[in-house]
Design a protein around this nucleic acid. Structure first.
Lengths: 189, 189
DNA sequence: TTGAATTTGTCGTTTATCCAACACATTGTA
DNA sequence: TACAATGTGTTGGATAAACGACAAATTCAA
């Protein structure tokens, strides 16, 4: 799904902006980063920024989505079934993503980040569910995906709240049976 | 002399092209590198290449000039006098440059490279001579610069011909007295 | 609070880059 | 040789990016 007929100028500029933002995020808090900072670092015109992003919050969303996508994408949902192994690996990707963010400074934007993670999860889970039972009516699978995404995300929050002590793998595994039984109930096989 | 009001798009594109060319030069012989190769690597349109360079030979010249400039420029002629120390350091820059090129594959273009080196040398030497005796008539200094540039370049060739065995420093030092006496003869002080 | 300074979004114009297409030259192969 | 494939250099029209300017919003010190 390469959607790769986007204008190369657009690809370049988007990358410049996003990379600069990520770079700056390592040095400053998000609230102290201005659009000017980003465009200066990226060596592009400030007006061009607004050609690609609504505002700095829009950029934040897209950058985080993309980074999270990179953590999650290829290995997992492209070829694999939705089973204990993939759920565990998905969960670990999420906690890794959260750990990588905690080095950076997004204080006050935890809810934004939470929404991004959950939305991405929902998309991925829905696709995996679709592959599992293509005959199923869509609505039911969508709702299942919503529920699962909230559930898995919630577990990751709980894991953080416990102080990151229990190994991720162990933590999520205790929830897997319930998750899978729900899916199987919903499934044909 | 930053001439830095060039369009940022131009700066970016030139850098992309030049860097890609340098990258490719490390893998292929110059004669096997096509414009398409370069623009593909640089992710720019082929037509854009011709907006900046006449052809691939023009690119070769500009890349080599720039790389050589980086080797020579700042430390030497910006602040310093033309004396034994600066001549030695200039000579070493040149031999270093030639050594760095010998890793790459420009077989059949040695004359182009020679011309580039000598031309750059001439420019730099002329500037240094100008600083030394600002009152002198220009033409005489220009000719001196031409002669010196050929001379120094010739010594670097000779040094290569001897198999790169004698230390550069020692090699050029034996020529320095003659060079400086010529300059002093020409100079007021 | 006031007012200066900075930041934000937007707009119109100009310029650089993209793209597809072209004729022509060069290379490679049967 | 011939003929296909590949590379070169150029063109015209479409589009993204640069730039300067602007009003409005926000930040911050007095």
């Amino acid at each position: 799904m390469p959607q790769s007929k986007t204008d190369p100028r657009v690809q370049r500029t988007r990358k410049l902006i996003m990379d600069s933002f990520i770079e700056l995020s390592g040095k400053k808090e998000f609230k102290d980063i201005t659009v000017k900072d980003i465009t200066t670092e990226a060596m592009i015109n400030r007006a061009t920024f607004y050609y690609h992003f609504e505002d700095i919050y829009d950029l934040l969303e897209k950058v985080l989505s993309e980074v999270l996508m990179i953590n999650l994408d290829v290995e997992i949902f492209e070829e694999n079934e939705l089973n204990e192994e993939t759920i565990v690996s998905m969960f670990i990707s999420i906690t890794n993503f959260q750990k990588s963010l905690s080095n950076r400074c997004y204080r006050g934007y935890e809810d934004t980040i939470a929404r991004i993670i959950r939305e991405q999860l929902e998309v991925i889970l829905y696709r995996m569910l679709l592959k599992r039972n293509a005959k199923e009516e869509d609505e039911s699978l969508k709702i299942t995906a919503v529920m699962l995404s909230w559930g898995i995300y919630g577990v990751s929050l709980e894991w953080r709240r416990k102080g990151l002590e229990v190994p991720e793998e162990e933590f999520i595994k205790s929830a897997v049976p319930y998750i899978l039984s729900g899916i199987h109930f919903n499934s044909k096989d």
